[in-house]
């Protein structure tokens, strides 16, 4: 549904990407091919270049080498099809704006320069707020929101863009249980619509539960593929190096393994789907 006309073209294709901040490489010769319609988690230690990779895909950084293609074309020509959910802490929540104001910003891209949002955009913003359960708070000043509510506002703003690819930078960071569930449901809805989601994710334990593909990144790409195939101790050890304690992984396996049988988790533990 997302892209009938270029079936088979990967949603995102990154080739030989190297990005350096001054002296230090943040990404080193990274390749990544994300098929259309998967939920991909990017995991890795701090400083592994996860946010940098998102920004590079968005075309916000100039790489030293390599290229990024979105549906087979340079990202500049595909901006409308990408939507971005930045880290919550990246903006100033004291900004004088209401929840609705912020969500409407998602429509600015298609409006282009100078044209103002009108009633149609307003309706769409409200619908998106409905989707994340925030409609009643649409007039609320954004500084009065909780962390989870702020995250949901950002998600609603991304939904308004009606894109095919959603890039999310730590959407689960510091949110309450309610919001976490809301985000998971949203991710599944997006997948059901054939959208592609690429999210930086911190919590290794929930990777198999929430996502069907995973990329392990530590400046270089360590592994990338369906969770069932690449999300194993060997790769995690390579990714996290000495910093990855055996105990953490043991706990993670213990806690996720028995839950796979519950219905909503088996539907999202998409190893089989990703491999298909």
């Amino acid at each position: 549904m997302a892209d009938r006309h270029n079936e088979g073209v990967p949603a995102v294709a990154v080739q030989d990407l190297t990005v350096a901040y001054r002296e230090r490489p943040a990404l080193w010769d990274v390749d990544l091919t994300v098929p259309s319609g998967v939920l991909l988690a990017i995991v890795g230690p701090n400083g592994a270049g996860k946010t940098t990779l998102l920004k590079a895909i968005l075309g916000l950084l100039r790489p030293v080498a390599g290229q990024v293609l979105v549906f087979g074309e340079p990202v500049e020509q595909q901006r409308r099809r990408i939507s971005y959910v930045p880290q919550r802490g990246s903006v100033d929540w004291d900004f004088p704006a209401s929840v609705l104001d912020v969500v409407m910003m998602g429509t600015y891209g298609e409006l282009g320069w100078i044209r103002r949002p009108g009633r149609r955009e307003r309706e769409r913003a409200l619908a998106a707020l409905d989707q994340v359960g925030m409609r009643e708070l649409s007039d609320r000043q954004i500084s009065q929101l909780s962390g989870g509510q702020q995250q949901r506002v950002f998600l609603a703003r991304a939904l308004v863009q009606a894109a095919d690819i959603y890039l999310m930078d730590e959407p689960f960071q510091g949110v309450d249980a309610l919001t976490e569930r809301a985000i998971v449901m949203l991710l599944q809805q997006l997948r059901a619509q054939g959208k592609t989601v690429i999210a930086v994710h911190h919590d290794l334990q929930t990777v198999p539960e929430y996502f069907d593909w995973v990329m392990l990144l530590n400046v270089r790409r360590i592994a990338c593929g369906p969770v069932a195939q690449v999300f194993n101790e060997h790769n995690l050890r390579l990714t996290y190096g000495g910093r990855f304690a055996m105990a953490a992984f043991a706990r993670e396996v213990e806690e996720t393994a028995p839950t796979v049988v519950t219905p909503d988790r088996s539907s999202s533990g998409g190893g089989a789907r990703g491999a298909a």
Partner: peptide, 14 residues
């Protein structure tokens, strides 16, 4: 408004 609140999104939207 957009570029003041969220320059990252402004850039991403072109």
């Amino acid at each position: 408004k957009l570029a003041t609140f969220d320059p990252g999104l402004a850039a991403a939207l072109g």
